[in-house]
C-alpha cells in the first residue's frame, strides 16, 4: 500500500527536478527534456494514487494520463520544430538571455 505513496513521491521529485532543470539549464533541448520529465512526474503521481482504490484500481487517472502522454508528444514535436527554426537563425539553440525590451 505504502509503495503507491512512494511512487507518488518519486513523481513529486521528478516534477520539481524537472522544474529546476527548466529554470537553470540554458540549452533548449535540455528545457524540452525537463518539461517531459516534469510531465512524467505528474503522470506517475496521478496513476500511483489511483491505486488506492483496492481491490479494483481506479482507471480514470490512467485514461487522463494516456490523454496527457499524447499531448506531451505533440508539444514535444512542436517545441523541437521551434528549436530547430531558432537555431537556424542564431546558433546555440538558446533563448536570448537578456531580453531588452526595445529590441
Amino acid at each position: 500500500m505504502s509503495m503507491l505513496f512512494f511512487y507518488a513521491l518519486i513523481g513529486v521529485g521528478l516534477f520539481t527536478l524537472g522544474l529546476l532543470a527548466l529554470v537553470v539549464q540554458p540549452h533548449l533541448l535540455q528545457k524540452i527534456l525537463a518539461l517531459n520529465v516534469m510531465g512524467s512526474g505528474v503522470f506517475l503521481l496521478l496513476v500511483a494514487l489511483g491505486g488506492r482504490s483496492q481491490p479494483v484500481v481506479d482507471v480514470v487517472p490512467q485514461a487522463m494520463v494516456i490523454t496527457g502522454i499524447v499531448v506531451a508528444v505533440s508539444a514535444t514535436a512542436m517545441a523541437l520544430t521551434l528549436m530547430l527554426n531558432l537555431s537556424r537563425s542564431s546558433p546555440g539553440a538558446q533563448l536570448p538571455e537578456d531580453q531588452s525590451a526595445d529590441s
Binding site: 516534477f15 522544474l19 527548466l22 533548449l28 528545457k31 518539461l35 516534469m38 510531465g39 505528474v42 508539444a75 512542436m78 517545441a79 521551434l82 528549436m83 527554426n85 531558432l86 537563425s89 542564431s90 533563448l95 536570448p96 529590441s103
Partner: peptide
C-alpha cells in the same frame, strides 16, 4: 524575434499547464 518569443511562450504555457 517571433520564433524565440514563441519558444519562450511555449515553455511558459506548458509549465503552466503542468
Amino acid at each position: 524575434d517571433s520564433v524565440s518569443a514563441a519558444m519562450r511562450y511555449l515553455l511558459s504555457t506548458l509549465l503552466g499547464s503542468l
